[in-house]
């Protein structure tokens, strides 16, 4: 199992630069202050370095697991085409931070 020592070694081998950290944060829509970028970089690199050990597993020809079912032949169930839901605009809007009449409000989007 990975030990913190080994993790630090990995860290040296492959690590994300701060630009990549910023790009990930941007993709994930999480605002990062400059000071947070450094910390996130160290932590994420530590974790990624530790995860790296997976690459040593031989997985040639292995069918990846699809979902979490312990049964390999799991298949989706299909439901009948019947209207059973909706007609509850108030409940849908009840938790909205900015309800605008029957709509959700957001800052104006320019397409």
């Amino acid at each position: 199992m990975g030990k913190p020592r080994q993790i630090k070694d990995f860290l040296k081998k492959m690590s994300l630069d701060t630009a990549t950290i910023r790009r990930i944060a941007s993709l994930a829509r999480i605002r990062l202050d400059e000071s947070e970028v450094q910390q996130a970089q160290a932590e994420i690199n530590g974790i990624l370095g530790w995860i790296e050990q997976l690459q040593e597993v031989e997985t040639e020809g292995v069918e990846p697991m699809a979902g979490g079912s312990p049964v390999a032949q799991a298949r989706a169930r299909l439901r009948p085409d019947v209207v059973t839901d909706g007609g509850q605009a108030d409940a849908i809007l009840a938790n909205a931070p900015d309800r605008q009449g029957e709509y959700f409000g957001v800052p104006k989007v320019v397409e």
Partner: peptide
């Protein structure tokens, strides 16, 4: 989801929590 698909309904009236 089981919400309806008809066109032109009142806003957010054909919406399930899904």
């Amino acid at each position: 989801s089981g919400a309806a698909t008809a066109f032109g309904a009142e806003p957010n009236s054909q919406v399930s929590f899904i």
